[in-house]
């Protein structure tokens, strides 16, 4: 195994340990709920960043797959014929198929037109959810709760177990995405982002690559939706509304799109902001808006990207200083 992969595994193990220990140290249920939201939204934002940051495809309709995962998982569990892992696999496969069909149409379009068509498909799915009341419950959402029968000795109806399950799934998904991020496929996607014409000349099938990452990102988003459905024990039409995709984009922008974990940091920031701002003021939008403006106009990139650039700049000045210092010493001796 390569050294980098080992390092990633080590970091993942530490992160998982921290996630699992946190609720033990601070046993308030509010913290656990907060962390589950960060996990679900963070996973959604991370999956979207495979398109936005890695491939340069700005999708405005990514929440469609989040909703598709949540609804198909919820409906399968309510049917009573499936165990939790089986329903998860089926929901993931179903969403992957959906993303394949929609993606095959969308990836042919460029720039803002790609954004608009993904938005159109998402809102189309939102309308179907609202209209097909018999199955989806319309604007009331999927009612009656989602049963969580125990499997392999894991009982998800216990809040602690559910949290640990979410944390493990989250870390596993991050590791998978990290592999993609560092793989030759990931570097091909970066080339497509920076210069599609050159990628094409080099014999890369640009459309197929884009479609591949579109399906993968959609599948990961549906995993986030499944976790959310498990946690809130339901699925709601808002999952497929454009504001959900919007929030995912803001998490990416706040956290940073060029650093792998940037979107998770953004999800954490946005959830914290939402949480504290609503406690202290009723003018939630005003404060949130001003903070976003300050970050965008002040840093001009996400927090993690800013930190990376700052560290890089510091390293260069240090190296330059060291280079200057060396000849000076020689001259003295």
């Amino acid at each position: 195994m390569r050294r980098e992969s080992l390092r990633d595994l080590f970091i993942a193990a530490v992160a998982l340990a921290v996630l699992l220990v946190l609720p033990v140290l601070f046993p308030q249920p509010a913290l656990r709920d907060f962390l589950v939201y960060v996990i679900a939204y963070g996973l959604l934002a991370m999956s979207l960043n495979l398109l936005v940051g890695l491939t340069g495809l700005v999708s405005f309709g990514h929440a469609a797959y989040f909703a598709s995962g949540a609804y198909s998982f919820g409906l399968l569990m309510q049917s009573g014929h499936f165990s939790v892992p089986m329903a998860m696999l089926c929901a993931l496969a179903g969403t992957a198929l959906l993303a394949l069909v929609i993606g095959a149409i969308c990836v042919r379009l460029k720039e803002i037109y790609f954004s608009f068509i993904t938005l159109a498909f998402q809102m189309f799915i939102h309308s179907i959810i609202l209209t097909w009341v018999d199955v989806t419950g319309g604007d009331q959402g999927l009612r009656g709760g989602i049963p969580r029968p125990a499997f392999l000795g894991i009982d998800l109806s216990q809040a602690g177990t559910l949290y640990a399950f979410c944390a493990v799934v989250f870390i596993v998904c991050l590791l998978i995405m990290r592999q993609v991020w560092q793989s030759p496929f990931g570097y091909t996607l970066r080339m497509i982002r920076d210069n599609p014409a050159r990628a094409n000349f080099l014999g890369v099938n640009v459309l197929r690559m884009k479609l591949g990452i579109f399906v993968l990102a959609g599948t990961m988003a549906s995993m986030a939706g499944i976790l959310m459905a498990l946690f809130v024990s339901g699925a709601y039409a808002e999952f497929a509304f454009w504001t959900m995709s919007g929030e995912a984009i803001f998490m990416i922008m706040l956290g940073g799109m060029q650093v792998f974990l940037g979107p998770v940091i953004g999800a954490f920031l946005l959830q914290t902001l939402n949480h504290y701002v609503t406690i202290y003021t009723e003018h939630h939008g005003l404060v949130l808006g001003l903070v976003i403006l300050a970050i965008v106009l002040g840093l001009r990139r996400g927090v993690a990207d800013y930190a990376r650039d700052w560290l890089a700049a510091r390293r260069t000045t240090r190296e330059a200083a060291a280079l200057e210092a060396k000849p000076a010493k020689k001259a003295v001796s």
Binding site: L288, L290, L293, L297
Partner: peptide, 9 residues
């Protein structure tokens, strides 16, 4: 993002 902030404000 700037426009979203403006809408909120």
């Amino acid at each position: 993002l700037v426009c979203y902030a403006a809408i909120l404000i």
